[in-house]
Amino acid sequence: MMNAGPITLERLDELLSAYGADEAGWPAGERQAARELIAASAEARRLLEDARALDTLLSAAPVEEPSEELVERLMAARPREVPKELPQARRGAGGAKKGGGLRGIAAALWPYGSSAFPAGALAASLVLGIALGTSTGISPIATNSGATTTAAATADTTDDQLIAIALADPSYIEEWTQ
């Protein structure tokens, strides 16, 4: 099948019946022999024309372009670039020169780490202060009645949880720096 010698009409018919009239689709090893037979034989040319007519018909089968919605769905789901560098304010005092604005000022004030940290500490202190104020009875809400004691106990638990979250979860501090 793959020899370079001449081919028969029967073999040419098989080739055309399988691959059609476009010689680019014929097996490379038989392409030249098929060309030579077609050039030499009227019957071979008739077979070729017959195959070409079927090719023309088949090429009329419908095909649509991908919809814009599909393209946009795929673009939305594409891989995203992972940032390689941290924000400039984290680079210390040197970065402040390039940073500018509030970020540059924050870096100058807090040259040893994230400028978000003092803000986080301030927020945590605020929460802690409210919690202490509530649980030590400084708040005018805390009275001697049993009902309010129960309410204060519940408030203690909730505030403890808030403080724990504020101090233990570093991820949201990261978010501030974005």
Binding site: P66, L70, L74, M75, R78, R80, E81, V82
Partner: peptide, 16 residues
């Protein structure tokens, strides 16, 4: 690496 234009080009070539 998340290159947006590469994604578009790859779809332009092959999605259809």
């Amino acid at each position: 690496k998340g290159d947006e234009s590469a994604c578009r080009e790859l779809m332009k070539r092959h999605l259809g």
